[in-house]
Design a protein around this nucleic acid. Sequence first.
DNA 1: ATCCTCA
Length: 693
Amino acid sequence: MPKNKKPAGGRAAKNFEPRYGAKSSYQDRKRRPGESSSGQAGSRSAGHRGHRPTETDAVAKGRWNAQERAGRDEARAIRTHARDDRPARSQGDRPVRSYDDRPRRDDRPARSYDDRARRDDRPARSYDDRPRRDDRPARSQGDRPVRSYGDRPARSYDDRPARSYGERPARSYDDRPRRDDRPARSQGDRPARSYGDRPARSYDDRPRRDDRPARSQGDRPARSYDDRPRRDDRPARSYDDRPRRDDRPARPQIDRPRGDGAANRSDWNAPARTAAYDAHVDVVHERLQAEAVQAGEVAETTFADLGLGDNIVGALAELGAAAPFPIQAATIPPILGGKDVLARGRTGSGKTIAFGAPLVESVLRSQAGKRREFGRAPKALILAPTRELALQIDGTIQPIARSVGLFTTQIYGGVPQGRQAGALKRGVDIVIGTPGRIEDLVNQGKLDLSEIRIVVLDEADHMCELGFLEPVQRILRHTAEGSQKLLFSATLDREVAALVDEFLVEPAVYEVAGEDQDSGTIEHRVLVIEHREKAEILDSLVSRSGKTLVFARTRAYAEMLADQFDDAGIHAVALHGDLNQAKRTRNLEKLTSGRVNVLVATDVAARGIHVDDIDLVIQADAPDEYKTYLHRSGRTGRAGRSGTVVTLITRQRRRRMGELLDRAEIDAPFEEVALGDDLLEELSGRQLADVDS
DNA sequence: ATCCTCA
């Protein structure tokens, strides 16, 4: 879809319609439409379902407003039940309390989804726990060892230390007696507390991860085996590799893991374990050696030459893809030939069509002469790391598939599954979605993957990272024996070895010669600022007329920044995982349509998301990984357009940032900037000029 | 830290 549109003309016009009226009109518009936002501080929440002004007012700090608001919608849906249960039970139980508590605690981990939401609003629950915890030490002396055997150990270790530090001793004494009043009081306390809790809680999920090391003995090593060792050598090697990449035949690199993988893996067990500790370290994986396709060689090629049928070629033209981009010319033939393919193409280079078009063609060929049966099992599967990306991919694939009478459906979380299940029941040919919901429906027996002959992993290296790898592996194991695998990413590296080893057969690796990430049209700037000026500097960068995407590291900060910009008179919306899916979709659409010019996002928007004409990407928080840098900055400068990436750092971070840019092979000047400097004007103003001209 | 299911 848009991802690939070089002749962006027609389409872009469609997207920009709302923006035609220059900047002043956009500001007018901002207050008007049914957004219900008056633009005042905190008034955004009035637009939230079930908004209660008093509640919001009670919590003074904007920062926590943001967080609370984020979880409120979901929380509300659940709250009634939970609250009802609690009081009822605990009332009678109290004396015996500790006995009951334990069991409940055990429940939590399982439900971690709910917990998040609830915690924000629900003083009731967490309070019950705490006190009990205090009891435990004393009473439970005997029990603990026994009980803790199950889940506890893992979890409780995480929680307890964290919480008990500041709060327990002091509070528990006060709180107990008062417990009945608590609901009332806790409103105020909450924010403060939840601050600490969240992290702790998200750890609830982690516990699973903590277990994993033990469990995943088999898997991990595979991955880390690539990372670790290399990391040390990296600096030295990576420099060598790039140049070499071009002339070197691909094979050896790919073959090696399969050849000696097993032996090596055990060797690397130890390093693997340390890996868990520096999860935030920017690991550099060896680049896969690829067959470089010369862009010039394919200049005259057409989609039809590559083996695609007329209808598909027509559909591509309608999407704005008249002639194949180099990465498409490179990968389409081998994909049609049934080979497993790894492909690296820089951001915005047209990867979606590169796998999408031949995938449709292949499914079509395999269906040739057959009737489309009701309830047929899908033949192709495309996995993406975020819902927005899955949605976007479907936006590209669906018209191609429809042009030849094939059906696609999106399978992702955060929305009712009824429609998705219904589509599957009727029968679709191509499934596009995110791992969680797909696995869920598979387990419910509503999605049959046994006839999947082609699987695509978009952002494949990301899909091999910690939270994704195992679900992805399980899903792949459900697909047909020997199904064709296609792995795509702008930063495809040896991190995918974990999947390559198990699932791919003699894969071919492709990339486009000379098309490195930094050979593009993006200008990179690093601003070294004083932390205390950060907020205002961001305000001044963001007050401009072009589309601006701001990245923040956490959901709470993203939410806070969106509020801050609104307060400063710049209409902004947020995109992160604490929002419900409806709001996520809506907010992204607002940027796409131009109804808002500033989107503040977490890394949920870092990969794959295509919005026309984002000409400025601001990293309010510098990324930890060079790959993240590449993907975030790739939201601009798409399909040959120009764009600027501005990264804000403090002086202390200079060195780290420098190293990161080296790994990303990006040249960016570091400039010390203070509030009011011309440079800030220039950065936001220049884009303004570009857009107007 | 982020993302990824459901209730």
